[in-house]
């Protein structure tokens, strides 16, 4: 069965300059209740992998360097 590739914007963004995933940090990935964040090993930063956000904010609040920003998903804005 063929699948389509739809683009969607994601509410959670990560400032690559501030993110310290390359130093072993996985805080945002760990705390996300829906497990939508992941570490991009090639870039050494966290990113939002699945558009399944509850905009609940632990990822932003618990990030030790303030690299994560949670926006309201576009459909709700």
């Amino acid at each position: 069965m063929p699948y389509a590739l739809n683009r969607v914007t994601v509410p959670v963004t990560v400032d690559a300059d501030k993110c310290i995933a390359d130093k072993g940090c996985t805080v945002c990935v760990d705390v996300c209740p829906l497990d939508v964040l992941a570490i991009d090993l090639t870039k050494g930063t966290a990113y939002m992998k699945f558009d399944e956000c509850w905009y609940c904010m632990p990822c932003e609040k618990d990030c030790p360097t303030g690299a994560v920003n949670v926006d309201i998903p576009y459909l709700l804005r």
């Binding site: 310290i20 130093k23 072993g24 940090c25 805080v27 030790p64």
Partner: peptide, 17 residues
Amino acid sequence: ARLIDPDPGVRRIAVLD
């Protein structure tokens, strides 16, 4: 061991862990 790493970022994560 990471707690005495030269990189403060690494030490900080070690505290969290």
